[in-house]
């Protein structure tokens, strides 16, 4: 997966700005053997309760993301979120709720720095596999 500088900046700055809470949003671009991420949509973390450990995105925001993709003639490629003070590795909850085909970018973040950015995709057995990020 290739992430444009602008898209990378938007996602990582979102993780830092919303620390210690988890940030979340969508990213868009072109599908293919090597996906290219060009657009980012930050969205509200709608999780009720402790947003330092969980995130949720409302159905309304999901529908907005699908509409944005149609309007901009890009593909909705996946979802990003941060793991404050934790590794950029998917949890059981991340996997349970994941959809096929989407890429899931996880941003490991400390108070003042990004520690790691990883991307994962579900395989046919509903297990996450790591995607290479250029």
């Amino acid at each position: 997966m290739k992430i444009s500088n602008n898209a990378y900046q938007l996602m990582t700055s979102d993780a830092l700005e919303r620390f210690p809470n988890e940030c979340c949003g969508f990213f868009f671009g072109e599908d293919g053997d090597n996906r290219t991420v060009t657009h980012v949509m930050k969205v509200n973390n709608s999780k009720e309760g402790d947003q330092r450990r969980r995130f949720a995105i409302s159905p309304v925001d999901y529908m907005k993301a699908e509409a944005f993709a149609d309007e901009q003639h890009v593909q909705l490629l996946g979802i990003y979120h941060s793991h404050p003070l934790h590794p950029a590795w998917p949890s059981v909850h991340d996997r349970e709720q994941a959809m096929p085909w989407f890429s899931y970018i996880i941003i490991g973040v400390q108070p003042d720095q990004i520690t790691r950015v990883n991307s994962f995709q579900l395989n046919d057995d509903r297990l996450f596999t790591l995607e290479t990020i250029e």
């Binding site: 330092r52 450990r53 949720a56 995105i57 793991h83 404050p84 949890s91 909850h93 709720q97 959809m99």
Partner: peptide, 12 residues
């Protein structure tokens, strides 16, 4: 009729 993936997750 719309199918909408419930999107959620997080550390724990």
């Amino acid at each position: 009729v719309s199918i909408i993936p419930a999107i959620a997750g997080g550390i724990a």
